[in-house]
Design a protein around this nucleic acid. Sequence first.
RNA 1: UUCGCCGGGCGGACAGCCGCUGCCGGUUCGCGGGCUACGCCUGGCGGGCCGGGGGAGGAAAGUCCGGUCUCCAUAGGGCAGCAUGCCGGCUAACGGCCGGGGGGAUGCGUUCAAGCGCAGCUCACGGAAAGUGCCACAGAAAAUAUACCGCCGGCCGCAAGGCUGGUAAGGGUGAAAUGGUGCGGUAAGAGCGCACCGCGGACGGAGCAAUCCGUGCGGCAGGGUAAACCCCAUGCGGAGCAAGACCAAAUAGGAGGGAAGGAGCGGCCCGCUCCGUUCGACCCUCGGGUAGGUCGCUCGAGCUUGCCAGCAAUGGCAGGCCAAGACGAAUGGCUGUCACCCCGCAAGGGGCACAGAAACCGGCUUAUAGUCCGGCGAAUCCG
RNA 2: UCCUCAGUAGCUCAAUGGUAGAGCAUUCGGCUGUUAACCGAAGGGUUGUAGGUUCGAGUCCUACCUGAGGAG
Length: 124
Amino acid sequence: MPREGGANGYGFPKSSRLLKPSEFRNTYQNGIRVPGRLFAAFCLRREEPAGAGPRVGFTAPRAFGKAVQRNRAKRRIREALRVRLGGVNGAWDIVVNPRRAVLTATAEELRREVERLVNQCGKR
RNA sequence: UUCGCCGGGCGGACAGCCGCUGCCGGUUCGCGGGCUACGCCUGGCGGGCCGGGGGAGGAAAGUCCGGUCUCCAUAGGGCAGCAUGCCGGCUAACGGCCGGGGGGAUGCGUUCAAGCGCAGCUCACGGAAAGUGCCACAGAAAAUAUACCGCCGGCCGCAAGGCUGGUAAGGGUGAAAUGGUGCGGUAAGAGCGCACCGCGGACGGAGCAAUCCGUGCGGCAGGGUAAACCCCAUGCGGAGCAAGACCAAAUAGGAGGGAAGGAGCGGCCCGCUCCGUUCGACCCUCGGGUAGGUCGCUCGAGCUUGCCAGCAAUGGCAGGCCAAGACGAAUGGCUGUCACCCCGCAAGGGGCACAGAAACCGGCUUAUAGUCCGGCGAAUCCG
RNA sequence: UCCUCAGUAGCUCAAUGGUAGAGCAUUCGGCUGUUAACCGAAGGGUUGUAGGUUCGAGUCCUACCUGAGGAG
C-alpha cells in the first residue's frame, strides 16, 4: 500500500499535504517548475525510502485576488488533483500556484491540466 | 396595480458520488506504564479504520471608535499630546443608540403681508464682551476708524465752481459696511424721540436640564472666521492573541563535575591517521534558548420564549438552549432536479449578488442580485 | 494581526485659504537642401471620489477608492 487513507484511495489526509513553511521553501528552491495554462507547479522528489506517497500544497498570493477567489482557486485544483493522486508514484513534493484562469475554467479543462501534471511526475 | 423614500426580515432548497476538520463512541497498531509476567490490563501519548452528530456572514470586509483579556513598573498625580462638545437618559464603555430643545431650507394650511401653526427632512449645535492672527479683488472705509458720488449750512464768486463745517438717510463696491420697518423730528440727517421686531441684561413662572413663556428696563454694547491659533469642560498610561504562559531536539557557545584517553579505517589483533593529557579530547549534569509542539481558544456584556417597568433606547424576572474553533489554515468539489430573475409567441437560451471566520464582544462605515412585511408620498383603475 | 505614507497635464514635480503653473513630451509655424538641435506659438486638468466648513478649497475637516512601503 503506497498511500494510506480511504477505502478507494481518494482520501486526502495530512500525511499527503505539505504542512510546514520549511517544506514549502525547500520545494520552491530545489524543485523543478512545471508551467501550465491554469497553474504552475513546483515538483521535488524526496530522498526517502520507498513506500512514501506524494505530498502537495497550494499557494495563492495576495495579488491573485480577494480571499474568496484565492480560496476557491485552491479548492478547485485540490479537488481535481485529489482524485488523481494515486497516479503519482514516488515521494514527490508538489506546490501548485494557481493562475486566474482557474476561476473561469470548466471542470473538464481542470481535469485535463491535472492529468498532464500527473503524467509528467509519473515518468521521472 | 406600478414607481419612489424610510424602517425591519430573508439572503437559495433537495438528492447522489467523492473528500476535509474538531468532538463523542467503537476497533486496531506502535511507544510508554503496571501486574498474580511467554500473556493480560491501561481514560498516558501517537497513528490508521468504522459509526454518530456539528461545521462561515449580514456584512465574517474596511480597521473608524469603544471595551473584555494579556504583558509592560504599582497605572496614582502633573505636563505634553490626542479625542469629544446643546440637554437628559441608556450602556461595561463609546465618537454609538433613544428621547427632548434650538437652528436651517422645503412643502401644506392660514394671512393683504410680516408672521404664526403643522408635517417629514436635516445640522461637528460649547466659547468671537480672554487674547492673537486672517478677510484676496473691488471699495472712501474690512474693524483703530473713516467719507468717493451725494444731501445740508456758512463764507467767497456774476456764474461755473471753490473753501470750510455738519451728516451717514440715498447711490456705488463687496460674500460681508457699525440693527430692521414705519411715524415723528431736522438746515440735512442720525436711536435724536416713539411703536413693533431684533439684541443685551434683570425679575417672576414652567422644566432635572437644554430651553420656553410673561413682565418691566437699557437706545444698542455691536462684522465674519475657532473643520485658524486658542480658551473652557470632560475623557484617555503604552502595546497588542505573532499579546502572553508552558514543554523542548540538533548545533554552537557558557557554568559545574569526572577524566587519560577518545574517534575513524577493519570481522578481530597488529598497524596507520586525527583530536587530546599546562590551552582538557571525551563523558555526565545544569541554565538561557532556536526549530518544533502544547495552552491561550471559545459559555459569552451569549441566544431564545413569555411576562413586567419605561414614550423609547434599554433593563428586571422566570423557563428553555449550547450554536465553527482551524493554524501553508477545514467548513468543500463534481453532477442532476427544483425554486427565483431576464429574453422569447413557443421550443429554448442565459443569469443566480456582495463576499470567506483567525482571541472575543458592542457600535459605526462601506459592498450587496433578488425577495417578503409595515409606514408614507405620487400616478392609474374600480366602487 | 497591525502601522505609516502617497494620489495635481501623457511623464517628473511646484503652488502663505484668493485667477492651478514649470520642465520634458505632443501639434503647428520658422530656420535648413533634409533631419536633429535651436527660436516662436498653441492645445492639453471635474487637482483620486463624495460630502461638509468658508464669501472663496489643490490647500482645512469627515467618509470612501486606489497604490506603495513597513513591523512582529
